[in-house]
């Protein structure tokens, strides 16, 4: 478990979190390499299907990062995303995954350090939870190979 390196998919809004990730890079901030970023035009673009498919394809944790509440480039996209993330938590719980494997964060494009902090915190959270129960079999196969 200690050497477990989670795979994390981060759905990032182009106008905030994606910019924050870029800024984190420019600032030479270190954050875990476990994060796979998928850029969205707005966090409101996420649907439960996106999030479920990420888990299905092998993600151990998934998060959505949108603009600060009240600051959405498309007025209320982040407020659309928030209940969808909460709803999807219930859907993954039905399947037998911990709802903590999915989260929504809010940040602005100027918050590079916050992006790095969220990446670290979330990676640590997933590390504590362990591999997704869906991936256990795949991992065993990999180890055997």
């Amino acid at each position: 478990m200690e050497d477990f390196e989670p795979t994390i998919v981060a759905f990032c809004c182009h106008y905030c979190a994606y910019g924050a990730a870029d800024l984190a890079g420019s600032m030479r901030l270190e954050y875990p390499t476990n994060i796979r970023i998928i850029r969205l035009p707005c966090s409101g673009k996420v649907t439960p299907v996106f999030l479920l498919r990420a888990f299905e394809k092998g993600a151990d944790g998934v998060y959505v990062a949108g603009c600060l509440e009240g600051d959405c480039h498309f007025i209320h996209g982040n407020l659309v995303a928030k209940p969808r993330v909460n709803y999807t938590k219930k859907l993954i719980q039905e399947v037998g995954l911990e709802p903590e494997r999915l989260e929504m964060f809010n940040m602005s494009a100027a918050m590079g350090p916050r992006f790095a902090e969220v990446a670290k915190e979330f990676t640590e959270r997933i590390r504590q939870l362990g591999p997704s129960p869906l991936n256990k079999k795949k991992r065993k196969t990999n180890e055997a190979a």
């Binding site: 439960p48 299907v49 299905e56 859907l91 993954i92 037998g96 129960p133 869906l134």
Partner: peptide, 19 residues
């Protein structure tokens, strides 16, 4: 269409988990 995709994803995951 969307609900079909959500339910299918959930079913596949639940069954995959049990091998």
């Amino acid at each position: 269409h969307d609900e079909v995709r959500v339910l299918s994803s959930q079913l596949r995951m639940a069954r995959d988990k049990d091998g």
